[in-house]
């Protein structure tokens, strides 16, 4: 199997629901395993949301590009944006063992992506951030 999916998401929150729905449809059509499907939806929401919230200082329209590929028993998802440099792999991991009253509310999005994927990579190239997530489809 070697199948791909691409979509462009505008840098505003109104664009997210349609992008999420389109991705979900495609994942369902391809019968992608639940764990990989969950990761793909999570990556779309978390990385696009981060980019919209923190990626730009201007009010211009920007495009965040999403690519998925199912090949060699693996799902490979790439999210590329032209926002400020942001390496999610440098984010501190939240301490999820703290007592509940001391637990910070945020910081879980990137943490979940790192834990749910088999491999996560980041490069800054040609003025763009590119995050790539790998997930083995039938471990």
């Amino acid at each position: 199997m070697n199948t791909g999916y691409s979509c462009d998401v505008a840098n505003n929150f109104d664009a997210l629901p349609a992008a999420m729905a389109g991705l979900s449809r495609w994942l369902e059509e391809q019968s992608v395993a639940p764990a990989a499907s969950y990761l793909a939806s999570l990556a779309l929401e978390e990385l696009v949301t981060n980019c919209i919230k923190y990626g730009y200082d201007d009010t211009a329209a920007h495009v965040i590009q999403i690519h998925l590929q199912l090949a060699g028993g693996e799902m490979i998802m790439t999210v590329e944006d032209d926002g400020h440099p942001f390496n999610p792999l440098e984010q501190a991991e939240p301490d999820t063992n703290l007592p509940i009253e001391e637990r910070p509310i945020g910081g879980l999005g990137i943490h979940m992506l790192r834990k749910m994927s088999d491999r996560m990579e980041y490069v800054r190239e040609n003025g763009k951030n590119r995050v790539t997530l790998h997930k083995i489809l039938n471990p």
């Binding site: 969950y38 939806s41 999570l42 929401e45 978390e46 949301t49 509940i100 009253e101 637990r103 509310i105 945020g106 879980l108 999005g109 979940m112």
Partner: peptide, 18 residues
């Protein structure tokens, strides 16, 4: 499906109850 925002809500609920 639960994203990080959904987890924040669940965590906030747990903290509020606790």
């Amino acid at each position: 499906f639960v994203s990080s925002l959904g987890l924040r809500l669940l965590l906030q609920s747990i903290k509020t109850v606790a």
